[in-house]
Amino acid sequence: MSVELAIPRGYTRVFSRPAALSEAGFTYCPGCHHGIITRLVAEAIDELGILERTVGIAPVGCAVFLDRFFNCDFVQAAHGRACAVATGIKRARPDLVVFTYQGDGDLAAIGTAETVHAANRGENITVIFVNNGIYGMTGGEMAPTTLPGQRTVTTPRGREPRSHGYPLKISEMLAQLDGPAYITRQAVFDYPHIVKAKRAILKAFRNQLEGKGFSLVEILSTCPTNWRMSPVEAGRWVAEEVSRFYPLGDLKDTG
């Protein structure tokens, strides 16, 4: 149990744990943006007042413990299958608010088919897509989204597109489909971007509440551990390099 500190006279509480988050500590590495993103999702659930009818889908990867962090119902999916599991839940109980939270290996490699077809069906679900360009949990292997030249444990001399393939701009691909309602790319490397990302997450949930269909928020994230960078360097890398390759902003919005 947390200790609720008394607020001294003349002070105002400006920061507290969202009600959607449990007491469990995050398992993310220092400097990883997952922590910010997980919290933003929790804040959105709080603000929309949907905690008691939300079901999250935890992926395989660094967010595999997600069900511990949230106070809502959760289902643990197999690697890449979150959108199919979400489809099953949402079709069975359309009154529930269903969201997936997936990394780039999960969503854009092993789960490409499930993602594309859920999007194409316009499944009325919310997808939070955390893109850090690497497989973090398994030790820093090349991801579909790894930048050209980027070193990983499976591209020790840097990603060479002619041999390793090009980075997959999955959000741009999905934005071409007729099914999705909302596809956007955001980042959380500084406060203004965190505010924008939060707004996008809120919109992706509101779309579901209004029955508008498939909404995906891609969020560029860091992996200081496997990028072999300090948290500050990692944030700067997203701001200066990653977001140049993956431009921020809305890719599709049916309004």
Partner: peptide, 17 residues
């Protein structure tokens, strides 16, 4: 579904629900 893999995972979701 788009595949058998997706179909069984939809079953997983609906059963969970």
């Amino acid at each position: 579904a788009e595949s058998e893999v997706a179909a069984i995972n939809m079953v997983y979701g609906a059963a969970a629900a």
